[in-house]
Each structure stands twice: as C-alpha cells, then as structure tokens.
Amino acid sequence: MLYRLAELEDVLAEAPGLFVRYSRGLAADLEFGALDAESGLELPGLSARPLDPEPWWNRPVRDWLARQVLPVDRLGDLREGVFPWILRGRVVGRGPSGEPLVTDIELVTRLAECLLDEAAGVYRERFGLDPEYAGLLAGAHA
C-alpha cells in the first residue's frame, strides 16, 4: 500500500508503464470481465489511466500523478468496495471514452485514502480547481 504521492513517484521512476484503476480489485475484475455499459459489448481489457506523464507534460511528475490518481467519476469510482490500485499490463486498445484497455495485468499495489487526500490538495494548489468539479470542465475548452 502506498501512502504518499512521493512513494508513487518513486515506484513509477523505478518501473515506468504503470496504470491506476478503480474497481473491486483484480480478482473481481478477472471473474466478471470488462463490459461496455452502454453497448453491452465485452472489452478486450480493463480500462485504466496511465501514470507515465505524456511527452508534452513539462510540469512536475507529482502534478501529473495528482491528476491521474483522483477518481474521474466521483460517485461511480467511490462506490462501496471500490478502491484505487496500481497495475502493470499491456495496452490492447482504447475504450469508448479513449481510455487505455489493459490486459496481462500484474497487480503492483493499492493506494491509501491519505494519498488521495494529498492528491486532491495538490490538485487544488497547483491547478486552482476543486477536484470534485474539475471533471465537469475537462471538455469545456476543447
């Protein structure tokens, strides 16, 4: 379990290619598979958010990680029994929202609630937005 963004940054520096996923865990995901909720189609992998900063990102890695580890869908991602975990795997496609779909998954670790609290604080400080509402603005300037 990781408790600080600095710990996550160290893990990523040692072994790039990590992703974060919110779910009931790898065992549950493997048991139930991945489905596109709207079409009902089976997806070829699990949706996950990449933790490696994009080449265009010229700000601190810590800022990138704060954005990536916060739940996208505050209500859906934080249902009872759902938690953030870090994984390594092979990207096999993109989901309906453009997110990477990952297979050949290796569980790396889980993220503690205090790490998410720290990420929300970094997000507020560095981006001047409340992370609770930032997702609503994601497409507003596109």
Rank of each mutant, 00 (worst) to 15 (best):
S23Y: 03
A112P: 02
A28W: 05
A13N: 03
L137T: 06
D29I: 03
R24G: 11
R79Q: 12
L12H: 11
D52A: 01
L2F: 03
R59W: 13
L12T: 10
Y123G: 08
A140C: 06
P50N: 06
E118C: 09
L115K: 05
R79H: 06
P44L: 11
R59M: 13
G128Y: 07
R110S: 15
L78K: 06
V92R: 09
L87M: 15
D52W: 07
H141N: 12
L111I: 09
L87Y: 03
R88I: 02
L41C: 13
L18T: 09
V72K: 14
W85C: 01
R88G: 04
L129K: 13
L87A: 03
L46S: 01
E113T: 06
L101D: 03
W56E: 15
N58Y: 00
R21V: 07
E38F: 09
L136A: 08
L35F: 11
E118V: 08
V92N: 10
A48H: 06
L129I: 05
E99K: 08
D73Q: 02
D77N: 14
P131E: 01
D130A: 04
E31H: 07
L30R: 14
T103A: 14
F83M: 04
D77S: 08
L136V: 05
P55R: 00
D104K: 08
Y133S: 05
W57V: 03
I105K: 02
A142Y: 11
L35Y: 06
L136N: 02
R90V: 02
P16H: 09
L43V: 05
R4Q: 15
G135W: 14
W57D: 00
Q68E: 13
G81C: 05
R126N: 03
